[in-house]
Design a protein around this nucleic acid. Structure first.
Lengths: 339, 339
DNA sequence: TTGTATGCGTTATCAA
DNA sequence: TTGATAACGCATACAA
């Protein structure tokens, strides 16, 4: 199909392109009669503006880029959902890219988005990312950037996340109040700040409740922070410290791995050992026993990050000052059968 | 940052824009010396072509659109992963949109993508979509389209899916061979073809093995084809037909709901009743007992659909003939503990 | 109220 | 081997 252009409408109506353009955008300085004529014909010819030309003229694409470690992840799916909802509301499109938890790939995806001239970028840092040179081009391009979930405090931009330390603190405090005394922690690897903060929250909760921290109760998930880690660490923990009466896991998946192990061993949950997860993955309410966990509001994180980004895009466009925000969304304790 | 343009390089070097453009693209009719000078300066100035201008000139955006019912879905996450991998390989970007299983929204998203002039569209139809007027604009724009998973045979374009009927047939045959005699089916709603085909496969398998079809063993999932449906139907089934010794569920989630019910009732799986799912969701191997299911290769479906789309985009661009393909990827039976 | 002229940054044709 | 010129389709400052 030949695409209709302003020019065609103009010649057909015997008026200028300018007038057509203005008429379609309801400029006040076009007579009602020509407006009507133009609009009617535009509809009849199924006119839609050529967005390539509009982009070139306006220097914006009404498109943002989203980079996240992986799309195969319950939490990130919720984030995406939130972002898409907000983008739809604001009439933006979203290009999604994965970093596979690799610094180099993250860098490549950033450059790609920049070369496509997206209006803004939403980024959740990869586990490998410990240094931020690769963000420099974003700032040089003056492209709005919002970090979410896996953020870095040093980076000078808006951020949306949860307070991992507090959430972990609350979870462990909950366990203590429930009467558990020997609480193990299956922690994440040493890289992403989230793991560290959750560990710190665990430690602080113990100390604040007069339980001395015992490093032999901490087990690291060094594979992928996933199911196998939980299973394996549960086995190790039982071998070394059979008196453990509760486990606070860095992630639901780790917790589920642990549950699997205890189920297989005939160790009763929560009678003999309690399990507490983190994130509130969908499946956590479907397993047996249902997992108590920290609710991490993925949808809301995505929605908020996107909203902030769109605001910054708007401000930039209108030369308004931009004040970076650092938002920490509330988490909550979800009590189910495993504690 | 001021973006570098061809013009700047040209003036800086005292040559024409044309020559700069050609030099950068390694045209044979530019001298090596100027080529080198141009390229060096381009690198020094961090030149990247303005993709808005390129789009306008070349009439392509190197971007495709993806519309799927929802992103909150294990299977679709895998599809997305496959699509992104293929897109990356071919240097395309992917814009993702959701239809929320609504016809009207699907229509709106299509028009949106078209107005953005994506080079091609990947679409998995919503459950509500029973009529295909809304695809007309795609064909009018002459935009390549590939349907995947939720396809419609009538639509004249390439398609990638599995053979739902055969997969269901294989699953039920497996159950029969295992010795199960009274096999119930928790079927999906009447709308998407997938549900229908899985039901037909169930029926045919029974008939081919001399088990007469009994409609009172079929229970419809009319909520959302999800967890609750499985739980509810398991309850109903036990109330009405306690001699059922196996359940073939339209979906893993439905199967997991059923498992939940039987677990709660103390009904032993698979000794008293076997459960068979469909899709091989990630969580299916984590629940207790692990679920036997049909593996539906989401990643591969996504990858293949994308590959076909890119081939069609290429063919269209080069005025080569396009032959629509209908590909059915292999499924396989995954035997675990629930059968 | 309408139209002219210009430019956004590239690519492509054709002449020099 | 190089460059002048036009064109892609639209938006806007300015003139009429």
């Amino acid at each position: 199909m030949k695409e209709t252009t302003l020019k065609q409408i103009a010649t057909e109506l015997g008026i200028s392109i300018t007038t057509v353009s203005k008429a379609l955008k309801n400029y006040p300085d076009v007579s009602e009669s020509t407006k009507k004529a133009v609009k009617d014909l535009a509809i009849a010819l199924h006119y839609t503006p050529n967005s390539f030309a509009v982009n070139l003229r306006t220097k914006e694409s009404k498109t943002i880029g989203l980079i996240l470690p992986t799309v195969l992840h319950d939490f990130f799916s919720n984030v995406i959902d939130g972002i898409l909802e907000e983008a739809e509301k604001r009439n933006y499109l979203v290009i999604i890219l994965q970093s596979n938890e690799k610094y180099e790939l993250e860098k490549k995806q950033i450059d790609l988005l920049l070369s496509k001239r997206v209006d803004g970028i939403l980024l959740s840092l990869s586990n490998e990312t410990g240094e931020f040179h690769h963000l420099k081009p974003i700032f040089e391009h003056n492209t709005p950037l919002v970090l979410f979930d896996k953020i870095a405090k040093i980076v000078n931009c808006s951020k949306v996340s949860i307070n991992d330390k507090k959430a972990a603190y609350d979870a462990v405090t909950y366990l203590i109040k429930k009467g558990y005394k020997k609480i193990a922690h299956f922690r994440g690897s040493y890289m992403p700040q989230n793991s560290i903060d959750r560990f710190l929250g665990y430690k602080k909760a113990l100390e604040d409740h007069d339980i001395s921290y015992d490093s032999s109760l901490v087990f690291v998930c060094d594979n992928n922070t996933d199911f196998e880690d939980g299973y394996e660490n549960a086995r190790k923990a039982m071998a070394v410290q059979p008196e453990i009466d509760a486990v606070f896991a860095v992630t639901d998946l780790v917790a589920i791995g642990a549950i699997k192990y205890f189920n297989e061993m005939g160790i009763k949950i929560p009678q003999q050992i309690a399990i507490f997860g983190f994130s509130n993955w969908f499946m956590s309410s479907l397993i047996t026993p249902k997992l108590s966990t920290v609710d991490q509001p993925g949808f809301e994180i995505g929605r908020t990050a996107a909203a902030i980004l769109f605001d910054e895009i708007y401000s930039k466009k209108n030369n308004l000052p931009i004040v970076f925000q650092s938002i920490e969304l509330e988490t909550s304790i979800i009590e189910r059968q495993s504690t």
